[in-house]
Simulated assay, not measured.
Amino acid sequence: MDTSRRAGDAVAQTHEQLRELILGGRLLPGQRLTQRELAELLDVGRTPLREALRMLEAEGFVTSRANYGITVAGLDLDEAEELYSALLLLQPPLLRPVSEATLERMAALAEGLRTRPGQPRDFHQDHIDFHLLPGEDGGPTLQRLVSGLYERLYRLHRFYYNRKKLPEYVLDLNDAFLAALRESDLRRARRVAELQLLTAAVGLITDVDPWHRFGPLARAAAGAGIELPLTGDGTLVTPVEVRWAEPLPGYTPVINDHVVDVTASDRAASDA
């Protein structure tokens, strides 16, 4: 076999092993790594190890500092908020009617997520694929942009949900989203998608840091016609009562622990 190919295979395998150790929580945020310990742990040579670490640093999984060494990167909640904000502005407005084939693929993923939890890496990749499928016809540039945002959130999701049970409402939101697309009700699909993203952002960030000061998410929400009520110091008190500027008659939001859509109740109160 070509020696260059063998070297490439060793680098790819080492990269994947280290990535899984980080995503699975075996190597923790802030933990200092030494090449000697990693080489012994993975039974790999120094050359593929160094190259794999360079790849992981480029992907944001590790950081390196002169005279200090390599450290597992911390969980950046400010970056997470920005990623969710970008998705909120990009994904729901781009929703269009989807084909029967896409609906069938989404249904298979939704069923698998509910009935076959599987390995954490498989679950989270399937969840990402479920939400990327409706945008397949959006053009390659937009697909790459949205996919890249999810890829950067993947590590945070894996690390966070490895340590707690996945809430049932996550799957309920998936089902509500799929049902709206099946009925070609794009207004409802967009509303569910917005609720999904807000719930994920608020739930994950406030659970890790209840005193996190929000900024980009509130501004992105306002740009989408959504009122996200911040306290005076920029924090959020959950469950957050969120209001959409446009009422959606007949829409029943999925109940969850973090974001409550009070738009309909406000409209009912004013009509009374």
Rank of each mutant, 00 (worst) to 15 (best):
residue 162 N to D: 15
residue 195 L to S: 01
residue 256 N to H: 04
residue 207 D to N: 12
residue 183 E to T: 04
residue 78 D to H: 12
residue 85 S to F: 04
residue 246 E to M: 11
residue 145 L to K: 08
residue 240 V to N: 03
residue 62 V to W: 02
residue 257 D to A: 14
residue 103 L to K: 02
residue 204 L to C: 03
residue 32 R to Q: 13
residue 167 P to K: 08
residue 171 L to V: 09
residue 243 R to C: 12
residue 224 A to D: 05
residue 50 R to K: 15
residue 261 D to L: 03
residue 222 A to I: 04
residue 7 A to L: 11
residue 101 A to E: 14
residue 271 D to W: 06
residue 79 E to G: 01
residue 204 L to S: 00
residue 189 A to D: 01
residue 248 L to V: 11
residue 238 T to S: 12
residue 219 R to W: 09
residue 230 L to W: 07
residue 147 S to K: 05
residue 38 L to E: 01
residue 26 R to L: 10
residue 122 D to V: 10
residue 14 T to D: 01
residue 71 T to I: 15
residue 171 L to W: 02
residue 158 R to D: 02
residue 188 R to C: 05
residue 123 F to T: 06
residue 223 G to P: 07
residue 215 G to V: 01
residue 9 D to I: 10
residue 101 A to R: 13
residue 195 L to T: 01
residue 79 E to K: 08
residue 245 A to I: 09
residue 140 P to A: 13
residue 150 Y to E: 07
residue 250 G to E: 13
residue 162 N to L: 12
residue 246 E to W: 10
residue 3 T to D: 06
residue 124 H to V: 14
residue 110 A to H: 06
residue 183 E to N: 10
residue 11 V to P: 00
residue 225 G to F: 10
residue 197 L to F: 07
residue 227 E to P: 03
residue 116 R to Q: 13
residue 150 Y to I: 10
residue 165 K to M: 09
residue 80 A to N: 02
residue 198 L to F: 05
residue 99 S to E: 14
residue 141 T to R: 11
residue 47 T to C: 02
residue 152 R to D: 07
residue 73 A to I: 03
residue 83 L to V: 05
residue 26 R to I: 11
residue 177 F to R: 02
residue 1 M to Q: 10
residue 201 A to G: 09
residue 36 R to K: 07
residue 180 A to W: 01
residue 113 L to F: 06
residue 94 L to Y: 04
residue 139 G to W: 09
residue 131 H to E: 07
residue 79 E to T: 14
residue 18 L to I: 15
residue 112 G to M: 07
residue 218 A to H: 06
